[in-house]
């Protein structure tokens, strides 16, 4: 962290206007996006995906298959971009790294006792170290929501800072699990803590809790990023995850991103979608735009 960043008192973070946020978020869904703009948006969204498999039943074969999908999305359309990254459990990082080779697709690993985060600090450290040593380019950690809700903000802050140190060159995504935080005010507070503690990304959800990412929650976090940028000059990336499975919704998110943070954030360095089934819906919409024919999922690879 830059020494000139002054850490604020987290018991006094900004409050969120709930009604205002929800109205503003719903307005982003009213934009009409057609033709070339739509096509560009779909391709951009595709390129922003962290293609994810986080199941107890993940196998080496499943992860290899996902990596192949990440690199070769739909061969019937030459020149498609790849997704941004593949997101797996630490035990699968080595497999994914090898499968992806020099394709440019990054390997993201969840860590710190994902998804609950209910483990001793040493376990979280080892978990993260293991992922980094196996070649993870990005670490998706979870915050200790229990501690956060108990008001132990320093604990949460220190834990994030500690994991950031272990990450080294790997970029750190901090999962707030907004579905467990309950209010927009707490989401805002958790976002601030994560950013000041050294997060490179803030991320909404694990995908294991409902509600996962919603547009209002993402808007609160985007505004936190904006305010942090104005205060410190440091850019933080955003990753909504969970529940975004339709191309249309992804486009709404891009509209929101553009109107809150602007074009500098409109690439996969600064914005990601944590999703699995979104990729195929985007591909189907892209093929519809290209051919004018409504598509069937039968002609797209399973992810």
């Amino acid at each position: 962290m830059k020494p000139n960043i002054k850490i604020p008192d987290f018991s006094h973070t900004a409050v969120v206007d709930q009604v205002g946020i929800e109205e503003r978020a719903s307005r982003f869904t009213k934009r009409s996006i057609k033709n070339e703009t739509k096509m560009n948006g779909l391709l951009l969204a595709l390129n922003m995906i962290d293609l994810t498999t986080l199941e107890g039943k993940d196998t080496v074969g499943k992860v290899k298959q996902l990596c192949t999908k990440a690199m070769h999305l739909h061969k019937a359309y030459p020149g498609l971009p790849t997704v941004a990254a593949v997101c797996v459990y630490p035990s699968m990082v080595g497999v994914a790294k090898k499968a992806l080779g020099d394709s440019g697709v990054k390997v993201a690993s969840v860590s710190t006792a994902f998804p609950s985060g209910q483990a001793p600090t040493q376990v979280k450290i080892d978990d993260t170290k293991y992922a980094v040593e196996n070649g993870a380019d990005e670490i998706d950690m979870v915050i200790s929501r229990g501690k956060f809700l108990q008001g132990e903000y320093n604990f949460v802050f220190d834990e994030i800072a500690l994991i950031k140190e272990i990450c080294g060159d790997a970029r750190l995504k901090v999962i707030l699990e907004t579905g467990e935080l309950g209010t927009y005010d707490r989401v805002r507070k958790a976002s601030d803590i994560a950013m000041y503690a050294g997060a490179d990304f803030i991320k909404t959800s694990t995908g294991k809790i409902s509600p996962a990412a919603t547009m209002p929650v993402t808007l609160v976090m985007l505004e936190a990023i904006r305010d942090f940028y104005y205060k410190t000059g440091k850019k933080i990336a955003m990753k909504p995850a969970g529940g975004i499975s339709k191309a249309k919704l992804a486009l709404h998110y891009l509209v929101m991103l553009n109107e809150v943070l602007g074009e500098d954030w409109m690439n996969n360095e600064w914005f990601r979608f944590g999703a699995s089934s979104l990729a195929n819906d985007l591909l189907m919409q892209i093929m519809k735009q290209k051919t004018g024919i409504y598509q069937s999922s039968n002609y797209f690879s399973i992810d």
Binding site: I293, Y294, Q295, S296, S297, N298, Y299
Partner: peptide, 8 residues
């Protein structure tokens, strides 16, 4: 046209 060309 759509009744006839929809892939699904």
């Amino acid at each position: 046209p759509y009744f006839a060309d929809h892939m699904d």
